[in-house]
Structures are given as C-alpha cells and as structure tokens.
Amino acid sequence: MTLEDWANFSNNAVAAATAVLALAWLASVAQWAFGSKAVRVERAVAAAEPALVGGGSASSNAPAVDGPSSADREAAEERSDLFGRIAFSLTVLGFLVLLAAVVARGLAAERVPWGNMYEFATTGICVVLGGYLVMDVLMKVRWLAPIVLGFAVVVLGLSMTVYVPAGPLVPALDSYWLVIHVISAMVAGAGFLVGAGASVLYLLRTRADARGGAKGYLSRLPSAASMDQLAYRVTAFSFPVWTFAALISGPIWAEHAWGRPWGWDPKEVWAFITWVAYAGYLHARATAGWKGKAAAILSLIAFATFLFNFVGVNLFFPGLHSYAK
C-alpha cells in the first residue's frame, strides 16, 4: 500500500470505529435500561409477595401473580445481560478497528501517530479503550461502559472538526521525547477519565442512597464505597504517570526544543494546575473531613482542568504548543 492508501484506510477505519462504538454505547445504555427495569419489576414482585422478600433467587418457583411477574423480571434481566455482552463485543471490535486506524495513520505519516490534535484525539481514545478493557479484566469495570463509550464517541466525533491530512511533523515535534511524553500523558489521561467516571457514579449513588436507597440502575452498580475505591486506585496509578509526563519528560523535551525546561506556557500552566488539583485529591482522600463527596468533586474538577488543557488551551490560547492547527 502507498502512503496515501494507508491514510485513506485510516480515515475509513476511524469512521467505522466511531460507528461501532456508537452502537456499543447504545447497547450499553440498553443494558442499563433493562437492568433498571429488572430492578423495578423485582421490587413490584417483592411488594406483591411479602413472603418472598429478600429471596431474589427463590422467585424462580414463585407462583404466577397478576401484574409484573418474576418471569418479566427474568426476561428483562436476560435482555440486560444480552445487551451487556453485545456492548462488550462491540467495544472490543471498535477498539481493534480504531487500533488499526491509528497504526495505519502512523504508517501513512511515517512517524508516531500523535503529532496534532486530531491524532491526539484518535490515539488517545484508543488508549482509553485499551485501558478500559485491561481494567475490565483486572477489576471488572463494565459498569463504566456507558460513560467510557459515550466519551469515546463524542471525542471521536469532535476529532473530525480538527482533522488534518497525514503528513510529517513540524520540526519542533520531531523528537523521540514526543513519543515518551505524549504516550505517558495519554495513559495518565485514560486513567483520569476512568477515575472521573467512577467518581460521577459514586456521587450519583451516594446521593441516591442518602435519599432512601438507590433505585433503578444505580442500585445495580457496585457499592458507593467500592466505586470510590476504584476512582482512588486508578487516580493513584495515573498521578505518578502524569507527574512523569508533565513534570519530567515535558520539561526535558522543552529544554531541548526551546531552551528552557519550564516557561509557563499556557499548556504548561494548565498541566501544572491539573497536577496540583490531583495532588489535592490524594490529600483529601487521606484527610478525615474531606473523604467521600468532597474528594470526588475535587477529582472531577481536576479532570475538568485536564480536559480544558487539551481542548481549551489548544484552541483559545496562543502558545508554543501550537499543534492544534
């Protein structure tokens, strides 16, 4: 294949991956919807048969009653599972297609495929999906699917607006530090995203719990405490990686390219702000009065500064990191 062929292949594959992931997202939402229906039916059944309260598994031999029956619940449960499996398969497929797209982009440009904002978005989402799949193997995080997939589809869609054809790098980016610096930033970002997703669900769930028990799908999520724990764990993993990206490899590269390790360029300022915000989160987790809700909100603020650095700073602030164009 010629370079042009690779470039075209990559563009088509990004479009295909976006479509597959959009379907995966729909399936994951359907999984939530049926899951929450199952919960509602279960409650209704339990209310109709006080004797069976608390006996979720006993409902299989429950006598038929008028209104919602345990058969309805099982049907909803089955559908929910089915859509869950569909969502997961499509996620794997979408990830593989996107991976192919990213590799092809690299072959077309004859360099690492993260030299401008379009590539940063596509490769970044590829890293996010890869990280999500790995984490699912390690700690069963499939309940995060709607958030992760929704984010992936939105970012892939928006990446079209900053599309540039494949080509060589501007000289300032032509350095092996680009490889190291950007990949570590993306890995950290993927972790931050998962942490933010878990924090959002944690906040929703604690609020629901406080209002007399989580209903619908929220009640099928892991307990608030364990979502909080997951958010902490991924953030605690990502924070050192981010430190490496923003405060070690970034400055080394900046020294090579621009003659100063740190120049308070807008991008650097915001990377620092993100770093401080996450350091604040880690402390908040360790400080008694700040545990839980306040810490979770802080982690969302921190993630917002991370996103702002990628989108806002690239587009609105002039600076040396001018790969937005």
Binding site: G263, W264, D265, P266, V269, W270, F272, I273, V276, A277, A279, G280, H283, V313, F317, P318, G319
Partner: peptide
C-alpha cells in the same frame, strides 16, 4: 500547604491568559 498549593495553581492562571513579557 495544600491551600497555598492550590493558590499557586490559581495564581498561575492569569499568566496563561494575559501575554507574558518573558514569553512573548
């Protein structure tokens, strides 16, 4: 210390909005 750290981050923001002599 954390408050000062957050303050430092906040204080860095204007420098990313208003052009800086040392930069440009």
């Amino acid at each position: 210390a954390l408050f000062l750290l957050l303050l430092l981050a906040l204080a860095a923001v204007p420098g990313s909005i208003v052009p800086q002599r040392s930069v440009d």
